[in-house]
Design a protein around this nucleic acid. Sequence first.
DNA 1: TTGTCGGCCGATCGCCGACAA
DNA 2: TTGTCGGCGATCGGCCGACAA
Lengths: 229, 229
Amino acid sequence: VDPKIWRACAGAAVHIPKLHSRVYYFPQGHMEHASPSHLLSPAFRSLPFVPCIVSSRELLADPFSDEVFAKLILTPLPHPFHHNHQNYGSNTGNDDDERECQNAVVSFSKILTPSDANNGGGFSVPRFCADSVFPPLDFRADPPVQLLTVTDVHGVAWRFRHIYRGTPRRHLFTTGWSKFVNHKKLIAGDSVVFVKDADGNVSVGIRRSTRFASTTSIVEAEQPAPAQG
Amino acid sequence: VDPKIWRACAGAAVHIPKLHSRVYYFPQGHMEHASPSHLLSPAFRSLPFVPCIVSSRELLADPFSDEVFAKLILTPLPHPFHHNHQNYGSNTGNDDDERECQNAVVSFSKILTPSDANNGGGFSVPRFCADSVFPPLDFRADPPVQLLTVTDVHGVAWRFRHIYRGTPRRHLFTTGWSKFVNHKKLIAGDSVVFVKDADGNVSVGIRRSTRFASTTSIVEAEQPAPAQG
DNA sequence: TTGTCGGCCGATCGCCGACAA
DNA sequence: TTGTCGGCGATCGGCCGACAA
């Protein structure tokens, strides 16, 4: 998975330790989050924490739900960390892919409204997103319209008809949007993330709202969110 | 799963040993059919066959594909079979459910034509099926029509509009058929099996044609098959 | 007897500007 | 600036008899 779109989907608050960095593994915390059947060597289970090295690091996306996650392999260190050890890696600063992300990358996320997710078929493109992420329209045309190709986390290409119309004028996705919503099984409250890289290529990621088993809608509580990433 | 519809789906050639009957387990044959990861005790792997008792027997259907299968648990016998042993069960004759199936049960199977599986939405009901399996229509009506409710292997009810119309007259399923085809993901070459029990209740089962990875259609080769079960 | 086709009608999809928040 | 609505035109699903195999 491309690190730019991965990072945009995960959000700015998520930090994944870089390769070869030193981390502490907390067996107790892991046990609480993992499934009950998760097995852990008894030698580690009783320790409060285990010093480790990140020996493998992959940014992945679920092939069905598109949800992003990281796969880390931690190798226990034979001895606790010692200050000023010569083989220390750095835990601070940015990873290579994080640095790359900050380099000439623009992203924008929007929580889908009921109208966006409806079978009505359209998507209201916020003005800022159209101006800063998508290729500029030819405003001499009436109405200005273009075919936009974006790629998802798996590299699959999706095409949206991007039009600027209506009174007052606004940016919209029409043809192609409904197919995307249905295929990704998006509902109101989910988010879409558009990312433009340095070459002007646009990617799209999705972030699903946490859906409770409760019958009450949580869409209201999810509404107020910062739009720009 | 109801044994009547299970047997109709499996076909007359399929024989499942009855409970408590004696069977031979062939490890080599099983290994060849099972997935490579299937584990088998080394104690059994080298034997040509293992005398067993059928200690559990269930007729099941895959919840997604509707394909029927049997789950047997075989308990190895400590010693090879001896003739005239007092605890011998019988391997011949019919199981209880096979006997039940033969009792006042009528079934009919048809391989779906392209027209049956098309999105056109209809199903040509063969004359014999309409006469012998489905409840009789009121031929005084013009056209004769009724709403037929059938249950699948999971006990889910499906409703088909059964009408006798056209020139020349023929039996057809219209409303409800397309929904069934799409939900079961049926294609031309697959079969449907209708079963009427002694109480006149109608069940429906499906049997999928073996589909090869090859790009050539196998529909032609599958066509000539006996219709009545 | 029954598989396939073209015609046709109604339902749904989805594009549109109006309007208001 | 943008969310929702009603209108309406295009498309599609699916019911029909004709016809032939």
